[in-house]
Amino acid sequence: MELEDKISLYYTSLTKSEKKVYQAVTKNPQTVIDNSIQKAAKELGVSVASIQRFINKLEYSGYPEFKLALQKQKENEKYSPSNSNVNNPIIHAYIRSFHLLENLNLDEFLRPLIKDLKKYHNIKSIGNGNTALSAKQLVYSMYSEDKFLDAVDTSIKIDYLANSLDKDILLIIFSVTAPQNTYGKLVENARKQGVPTYLITMNQESKLLSQVSEAIVLPSTHVEHDDNTLHRVDSRAVLYVFAEMISYYYAVGLK
């Protein structure tokens, strides 16, 4: 997977210093390719520790593998025709996100979810703020399959739901960052009650990932400027498409 694609998968969890490392590295890849991590850090104006944290965040085995990835990306850029991201950066960003989504292994998440959607009748599609619209999209998508879901779309409703769970409820949570302060109590109570909980997020580091029944991390969407800084683009389009995928596979099944 190319560095740019990895950034799409890990963007939500990148810290300010890690984004600074990405900007410096992609602006001057040869500095990393030709030098030790100590010398590269000095020339790029970042710390060795921040480079190491960035490498670990993107799940490279170490600095040598990271250097090889940069070398490969540089060679691909040299021999590949220019793409459309200069004139249409937003379109290019979404195309990249959807391409990554297409190539994710979705079966492990979707198979048990579809099975539970068919099994349960009291189903809550949950989102807060912007992702409330994604939760509602799943509700609307399932109407065509004669399946009714309740939308839980505010923090107040989420708090009430956390205190009124029973074993006959199925929870599906849409959240870009999956913050503990919003969903921690709900997920904890669901676990105590034996309530199956499915988390759809874009945050590789959310603590909720290990607390829910099933979770999937989708690619977020971003644009890289000419100076290699990153600009976040609204990722709800990816969540909308995933909601449609759930509805589709509910109707036709998984092969």
Rank of each mutant, 00 (worst) to 15 (best):
I158F: 08
A24E: 12
K72G: 02
F242G: 13
S61L: 11
D107C: 02
L239Q: 14
N56G: 15
K136S: 08
Q180I: 10
L218W: 03
Q180G: 04
Q211P: 07
D150H: 14
K72Y: 01
I172S: 11
G253R: 00
N105P: 00
E224I: 00
K39H: 08
S47I: 08
K115S: 14
K19M: 08
I173C: 01
D168C: 07
K192A: 14
I246S: 11
L138P: 02
L101A: 08
E108P: 00
A237R: 06
K147Q: 12
K192E: 15
M202C: 09
A93Y: 00
L165W: 10
Q23R: 15
S141A: 14
V195A: 07
V46F: 00
I51D: 08
V223I: 15
E75I: 03
V176K: 08
L171W: 14
T154G: 11
A132M: 01
V86I: 01
V21D: 06
N122M: 03
K72Q: 12
E75G: 09
H225I: 00
G129W: 04
H99D: 15
L70H: 09
M202G: 01
L133E: 03
Q193M: 13
L104Q: 14
L70A: 00
T15L: 13
H121A: 02
L239M: 09
A69R: 13
K124N: 12
I200Q: 06
S97E: 12
G127H: 05
V152S: 09
R236V: 02
I169G: 01
K19V: 06
M142A: 13
E77Q: 11
A132C: 02
L113C: 10
A190S: 13
S13Y: 03
L9N: 13
L171E: 06
S175C: 05
Y143R: 15
K16G: 05
D107I: 04
L208I: 00
Y249D: 12
